[in-house]
Design a binder for these strands. Structure first.
Lengths: 370, 370
DNA sequence: TTGTATGCGTTATCAC
DNA sequence: GTGATAACGCATACAA
């Protein structure tokens, strides 16, 4: 029963429109519009009166009318690959937060690695006239994006450029965190480290693996033949990787995983086999999903900041909006870093085998053979 | 370079409007509108021609224009309490899927138990003229909803009614699954079972706890003094609960938790103390979050179906839309059920103490004292 | 059954 | 700086 009828006219929703505000403030609708849009060409005292009227009437501009006349929907798209992967919800929230601060709404869609789902979602995006899309899918499934590209919608992707005029790529520095991970292990005394990779055609996984191989080489460990198992970034992939490494003749003393879910799978196998982590085997993940600190033992992992990623994605879109010529565009850099928890330690036989670098950060190095 | 200029007029976005379609099909705009809106009052052969024109020109109706003239935004709101709780992303996806099938977009917001966040999000909802909101927050924070109620926006809540004209409540049948859980434990031979509750003023937690107490009573176990620890539905709350139950004089042989995160906390404490689950302690969770099957050991838990919940929420809104008189409205029922995994087993001393029901489903009952 | 005309609430283009 | 006024793209009341 909140002033549903005003001026003999039914009011729906917020009910009050720009004309009523104008009347109440004693100005023209145009001036009200200028005020709500932050145009600086309005006299102070008039703006004041307009704001007062807005306050008094509880006026909120109608977004659909605005969008219609301005051609800008103030809606963004966010495409992720699987919402059940804890990495993404955090990313979504951070993206929505930045977007919201700039008065954008965001449509989120999870492909679940399903081509059809992606297509349907993208269709919805163009139908709703989104002003930009962040494709946070870590896959080069750019054929999904054809419709977006055809509509000339600004696009921000990860790792691999969309090959479109109005697009921009976020370059994740995998090497940074993976270097830290390998050095961390080397310092602990590990000399034979396995890498559980994600599915191989995907660029992001190639990069993670290459970063590992280079890091291992650089550290002087495992020469060029660091053992690599190609999994699929799932829990099951992790169990398979664990089984593979456990079967190796000289068994690795540590496993670095291409993502956290695989690390969780590895942990499960170790637990089932009675192999203590980290005493008998060190494990490192990648992503730092929420779960990483709740699993047993808490997972040492490489963190890729969701907040940084979200901000970079939004700013990338901003860049594309304000950009005149699609020329001088440079990729946006996103860092990674190691987070040490409790799934890494010195290997049991390490202390005497490697007496040369006894100094390890914390006092977590165990006494010999104890 | 996709037909950006048509008829000497710059086309933006999908570019083609209802008038062009009308011309192309040789009918009036009104007829095109009737066709796209599925009005049955259009002659078959004309509709055919219209569809052909739509196809040919790649026409998609402008949602903002539609919303403006019809007064219906085709946008819904979804409010959850914390996006990092794996329960919610699944719920979100399911809700978006149902909504999407009916041509609705959904704005999701996570309060993170932060009053200010909720307020801000709700303001955005009314500004965007959402047609309905699903409040899946499991809390009676109805003061958040005042603005929604004042705008007379259809509201679906969980457990506790919003006390608004156009609202409806989803009644989750906690007792159903919790009964199953307690009976499952009783069948395994447990007679002294602890309950780790969520924060107590909240109705949902009261209901879960009451369901447990009643189930325990009904089963004839633990008389009326089943031990209850009031935690806070977080991982830490779970560790505290575990410590509490471990300190009890006759130590419970099983712990039922009010949600999965607490169960995960319990599991962690058990692991740290070297207490084997399920051999030395059985643990049951509630929710069946994704993580439940990946934790060690996989968690026996009560599943509350996200899909069922999402569908119920949407159908609730539909009901509110089509409803004439806000009278004959009945709550929507949502069930729960036990999912048995590997965190439950017979207590060690059970077999001789309770010889009466030796038959347990799978062959998971251990030999006495082995 | 189909077409014509009006209006939805706002921004933008002009004059002033 | 400020105010009229014409779009924006569509649904719909009404006329035919």
């Amino acid at each position: 029963m909140t002033a549903q009828v005003l001026n003999g006219k039914k009011t729906r929703g917020s009910g009050v429109d720009i004309i009523q505000v104008a009347q109440c403030a004693g100005v023209s609708p145009a001036t009200v519009s200028r005020v709500t849009n932050g145009r600086s060409t309005v006299a102070k005292h008039l703006a004041k009166k307009v704001w007062r009227a807005i306050e008094e009437l509880g006026y909120t501009p109608n977004p659909q009318a605005r969008a219609l006349v301005s051609g800008r929907s103030r809606v963004l798209g966010l495409l992720v690959s699987e919402i059940t992967n804890p990495f993404f919800p955090e990313l979504m929230q951070n993206f929505e937060d930045v977007a919201g601060k700039h008065d954008f709404e965001v449509m989120v869609g999870s492909t679940n690695y399903n081509r059809e789902r992606a297509k349907i979602f993208i269709r919805r995006l163009v139908q709703r006239r989104v002003e930009g899309v962040a494709v946070m899918t870590f896959r080069a499934e750019s054929h999904f994006l054809d419709e977006l590209i055809a509509e000339n919608i600004p696009l921000v992707t990860i790792d691999v450029s969309a090959d479109a005029a109005r697009s921009l790529v976020l370059e994740v520095d995998y090497a940074q965190g993976i270097d830290e991970a390998v050095q961390h292990l080397a310092l602990l005394g590990h000399r034979w480290i396995g890498f559980a990779s994600g599915p191989m055609p995907h660029l992001t996984n190639v990069r993670r693996k290459d970063a590992f191989v280079r890091a291992a080489k650089r550290i002087g460990l495992a020469a060029e033949k660091a053992p690599v198992f190609v999994g699929d970034h799932t829990f099951e992939g992790g169990t398979q990787a664990a089984l593979y490494f456990l079967g190796l003749k000289p068994r690795p003393t540590a496993i670095v995983c291409s993502n956290d879910m695989m690390a969780v799978g590895v942990l499960r196998v170790m637990a089932e086999r009675g192999i203590q982590v980290p005493r008998d085997m060190s494990v490192i993940g990648f992503d730092d999903i929420h779960l990483a600190e709740f699993i047993n033992p808490p997972l040492t992992t490489v963190r890729m900041s969701r907040q940084e990623l979200a901000k970079a994605a939004f700013h990338g879109l901003q860049q594309l909006w304000t950009e005149k010529s699609p020329g001088s565009r440079n990729a946006i850099h996103v860092g990674t870093r190691l987070v040490v928890r409790q799934s890494t330690d010195s290997p049991r036989e390490a202390a005497e085998a490697l007496p040369r670098k006894p100094r390890v950060r914390k006092a977590r190095m165990r006494p010999v053979l104890a």
